[in-house]
Design a protein around this nucleic acid. Structure first.
Lengths: 223, 223
DNA sequence: CGGCTGATTGAATCAGATCAACTGCTGTGG
DNA sequence: CCACAGCAGTTGATCTGATTCAATCAGCCG
């Protein structure tokens, strides 16, 4: 499994001996598109990581609406919350594409953390990042309307991809679930952005036409 | 400061030598009601803990609406997210009552974590708990309506306090902000719960009249 | 007794969800 | 190669939960 472990950038700063330890205890498996990797409520026996593919972490309500919490690509780890306090997973993980998923059993991993302060600090940093991203999400859901959330998302993509041309990383239906809304609403909002000449939207690709206005909308200005 | 450190239940499992180290490096100060302890965006120089009093962590929007993320009482720590990744605080902390707040400088605390694996694991457990509470909040904001959120909150209070009689821990306006709504809406909903004979509400004290129905509403049933 | 803050109530409005229909694309099989 | 099934996305009409604005009320403290 050394091969797969090397793909997990989260581990890349670790010492060679720890990487080999991880490789020894981890296993890797394949998931088809839409396959469930682990479900809410289930006991998580360890840490998961994406070696290849794309995974979404989401919650579903009784009446079918979904809220995506994270989308993870190659190199990212998930289900870390179940390692340290309570084993039950708070949400469900599902492959959005055919994916290679590495699994690291809890017992051995926690053991490793005790011995490697650097790994412990990495985990602390990781959890802090997750916390920050959740704070943003709560803020957006509670204090901002859908256009502002979408504008914010575009700006984040821009920061990650650079330039004025942006490629959506998700199909629009999934993007709606990530923003805490439904496809119909997102579709109407995309139209408004187009009509106001803030964005040029062609399928999955977006060009920013009016950066300043986009940033204003992200902060709460109407339109 | 040993006095104050002993009040922080989060530290209670630590070894004597570490407690003394914490006592040496920490300081304590007083905050009046409504006083800001630390603000969003500001650099947090360390970890805060409530020795006495009540503190809310919240975000505010431009147009004045507020979303409370946490309310912390004696023994609880906050601003831990700024210790491990990025120093800027994601939200603001404010005293809801006259409070004694302990402060532990980041440098020394992180140093201590490196030497004390148990403390590191405690911090990991703490961050995991926070993550879980945020997942719940996101789920509630996105997938549930206000009555369900309130019912859920009452059930949590019941779990903490026991029995059918419950005392609200916050004024109603603050409770509204915690549930992601506004006082007017909460007030209307309280009335509905009363009229449906689910709850008997007298100011801050609540008696549960129909447990089963309350649980049903928490899960999404209408009324 | 004022005056302040928190809480309640009412009427109007609005953002977003729901329901339903339609478009367009892609891949599959006859 | 065309036809059709199936899914993602779009559009329209309607409904509703929640916010907004405004007014009133209750309790508390000086």
């Amino acid at each position: 499994m050394r091969n797969a472990i090397d793909k997990i950038s989260f581990f890349s700063g670790l010492e060679e001996t720890h990487l080999e330890a991880l490789a020894r205890i981890s296993s890797s498996s394949h998931f088809e598109k839409n396959e469930i990797i682990c479900s809410e409520g289930q006991e998580a026996g360890g840490l998961y990581a994406v070696a290849d593919g794309l995974v979404r972490i989401f919650k579903a309500s009784l009446n079918g609406k979904e809220q995506i919490l994270h989308v993870f690509g190659p190199g990212e780890v998930f289900a870390e919350v179940a390692l340290f306090k309570g084993a039950a997973l708070p949400a469900t993980a599902q492959a959005l594409e055919p994916s290679e998923i590495v699994f690291i059993p809890k017992r051995e991993f926690v053991e490793l953390i005790r011995e490697a302060p650097d790994l412990a600090l990495s985990m602390l940093a990781l959890l802090s990042l997750r916390l920050r991203s959740f704070v943003s999400k709560i803020e957006e859901l509670s204090l901002k309307e859908v256009p502002a959330r979408f504008a914010q998302h575009v700006l984040l993509l821009q920061a990650a991809q650079g330039g004025r041309d942006i490629l959506l990383d998700l199909p629009k239906g999934q993007l709606a679930a990530l923003l805490g809304t439904i496809p119909e609403t997102l579709s109407r909002i995309l139209k408004k952005f187009s009509e106001s000449n803030l964005l040029d939207i062609q399928g999955q690709s977006i060009r920013i036409l009016n950066q300043a206005a986009l940033e204003a909308v992200a902060l709460g200005k109407k339109l």
